[in-house]
């Protein structure tokens, strides 16, 4: 029983990171209709920036987080303005390829600017182990679970109450009509990119705290894919939740079946889910009219 609890708790902890990254995917898909294949790479770049700040001014965890988030905001803005906006109106396929190329570039830039060695992100907190009964969890893992919940709440409120959030839903529903109603689609896209970059940044920092900063960090994007698909590409909250579901699922598969199954569990799950629901669990069904 203790074993099961341990598996589930650590599954939730890693799933919360997948969930955050997956929310980033979904936010961009909802607003712009494309999958940003560079999501994991953005998380990695922000984690490296956080590590650099932590190395330059040690002892200020809030400065590290704040600085990294400002960097995330700028990164999102720059990518949207310089790379994605000129692609407005191009076919989805081409735009998605641009994000793939962006991913390749970011991966090399990390090695160019920093180095191939793994590093620990040391901000003084997050690495200590907390024990609940027999279960050990790092404090950063507790924090990331809380952060996922908070981000979900913020997202829900954003789409429900804020003017921009409503406008984004309108663009997602019908971009043309939304524009006719006076909504600037370009601005909505910019907001989505910035938001997504911020969420990726948060995920990257937590990942770096719990594991380490390394040029492999972008794999987290690949792991979060199934979560986004499971939740439905356009369902931000669904993606967040699915991340946790997948984190637990892969831990159970690794813990009770074969350890080598752990890494492909997510992919197996999405194939099964898509057979039944081709638009994910919470995704909106696209109705085609002739």
């Amino acid at each position: 029983m203790q074993y099961l609890v341990d598996l589930v708790v650590s599954g939730i902890a890693v799933g919360a990171i997948y969930g955050l990254v997956a929310m980033g995917f979904a936010l961009i898909y909802k607003a712009t209709g494309l999958v940003n294949f560079a999501q994991g790479e953005m998380a990695m770049v922000i984690a490296y920036i956080a590590w650099t700040i932590a190395g330059t001014v040690p002892g200020h965890p809030w400065l590290v987080v704040g600085g990294a988030l400002v960097a995330a905001l700028l990164l999102g803005l720059v990518i949207e303005r310089l790379i994605m906006r000129p692609m407005l109106g191009e076919p989805v396929f081409a735009t998605v390829m641009v994000t793939i190329a962006l991913a390749v570039i970011l991966r090399s830039l990390v090695l160019l600017v920093w180095d191939p060695y793994p590093h620990a992100l040391d901000i003084g907190v997050g690495r200590d182990v907390i024990h609940f009964g027999g279960t050990g969890v790092r404090s950063a893992q507790v924090a990331v679970m809380a952060t996922l919940l908070a981000t979900c709440a913020v997202m829900w409120a954003f789409f429900r109450f804020s003017r921009i959030g409503k406008a984004m839903r309108a663009v997602a529903a019908d971009e043309r009509t939304a524009q006719l109603m006076g909504i600037s689609a370009a601005r909505i896209h910019a907001v989505a990119w910035v938001g997504s970059s911020l969420i990726a940044g948060i995920a990257g920092i937590f990942f770096a705290l719990i594991y380490d900063v390394s040029p492999n960090l972008y794999h987290v994007g690949l792991k979060a894919f199934p979560a986004t698909i499971l939740g439905g590409l356009d369902s931000v909250l669904g993606s967040g939740l699915s991340g946790v579901v997948l984190g637990v699922a892969e831990n159970l598969a690794g813990g009770y079946l074969a350890p080598s199954l752990k890494e492909i569990t997510g992919f197996a799950v999405i194939i099964a889910v898509l057979m039944v629901r081709p638009f994910g669990l919470f995704g909106e069904r696209e109705i085609e009219r002739v």
């Binding site: 598996l7 650590s10 599954g11 492999n216 892969e250 831990n251 690794g254 074969a258 350890p259 890494e263």
Partner: peptide, 20 residues
């Protein structure tokens, strides 16, 4: 006895299993 996939980053279930 276990095998993990190259590139794996989270080892919580593997190590839990080893401890178990």
């Amino acid at each position: 006895e276990g095998e993990y996939k190259k590139g794996q980053q989270d080892f919580s279930s593997d190590i839990l299993r080893a401890r178990q």
